[in-house]
Design a protein around this nucleic acid. Structure first.
Lengths: 190, 190
DNA sequence: GATGGTACATAACAAACGTTTGGTACGGAG
DNA sequence: CTCCGTACCAAACGTTTGTTATGTACCATC
């Protein structure tokens, strides 16, 4: 079931997630689907949970580093570095569109972002504690900008994989993390 | 015509852009639309050009600053700072979804990204020349990461406007620009 | 004034969608 | 054995979609 939903999701995205497509993907009838999902909305919700589960499965692995290195590891997990990660990101971008028009889905996406930032946050805190990031910046701002840079990179990589191959995506993340390590200067040089 | 298309686009997004919706928005019939747009694809293309035109209208204003300040001004133009900018960004996010499933639209989005980065690039170059950004970093990488941070911020602001009010979005951009001004340090402090 | 192309409206079309209905198979409870 | 709820299938329904067909004003040209 979840496998069929994911296949449709990966191939056609949230906007094209249709009862018949899912039914066909699992060799069943639309009647069976309505048996489990009284309304389309329920199928969409389930599809969202499937996507989230898959995301967490690849994301919530344990990591033996701390601070900036841990932040780096988690950001890299989100990037479009493998075909599977590309499919994953395509699904989530398509979900953005669906969520924009549906307040309920929008709320779940808001919550998903909060969870993601909450997951990144302790490692940013650790980076501050270890002195990897010099004091002076707000923790939540660093978290938000790290998330922003990563997702912005994902979108660009999705539309221009040639210009944003895996190694460049990683390098751009590393460049960003390196800038975090230098002291915040309010005044400009000279 | 372009006004009606834009209204539908802003209200329902690219995925819900329908012949009848556009026809209703301009008080005409679907027959008239097919007269000008033989196929749906043509209407979508036109809608894309309408969106791009609107984007450029707000973006291609002249600026009396150079270097980092100019980069800042252009990035701020993209952010979801006003209701109009929010609508604009919602349209583009919905276009991402449409483009992911359509190679032709994907190509136009790739090109649009290239144009955006090309527009930002000279100001990054100027920032290097003025010494606002210390040497050592690749110009195109700075451009790409600036674009990434901005769009990543846009998406987060779209789904969490309370947590990302205009002043915080601006502040996050300013924080990022400030980190550009400090020398790239390969080694970590102690 | 006849002719023909442009600019629409009206209406119908097939396809795809979510949903509903009627029915079948089956397995445990009484 | 009977009964009944669960688990499905096949088919149809009404709606919405893009598309097409037919008809009609209008305006310019000859």
């Amino acid at each position: 079931m979840s496998e069929a939903v994911w296949r449709v999701l990966a191939e056609r995205g949230f906007g094209q997630l249709t009862l018949r497509a899912v039914a066909a993907a699992m060799g069943a009838s639309t009647g069976m689907l309505t048996h489990y999902f009284p309304a389309k909305r329920d199928l969409v919700r389930y599809a969202h949970s499937v996507a989230e589960e898959r995301t967490l499965a690849t994301l919530y692995r344990d990591i033996d580093v701390t601070g900036l290195a841990a932040l780096r590891a988690y950001l890299l997990d989100v990037l479009a570095l493998t075909p599977e990660a590309v499919a994953m990101n395509r699904v989530w971008v398509s979900f953005w569109d669906a969520a924009i028009g549906d307040p309920e889905l929008a709320a779940t996406e808001t919550a998903r972002y909060e969870r993601w930032r909450a997951k990144l946050r302790p490692h940013v805190v650790a980076a501050f504690d270890k002195g990897e990031i010099p004091p002076g910046r707000n923790v939540d701002d660093v978290v938000a900008s790290a998330a922003a840079l990563t997702h912005g990179l994902v979108v660009q990589a999705l539309f221009d994989p040639d210009r944003f191959p895996p190694d460049r995506q990683i390098q751009l993340i590393d460049d960003y993390l390196r800038t975090l390590t230098c002291p915040s200067t309010t005044e400009s040089p000279t």
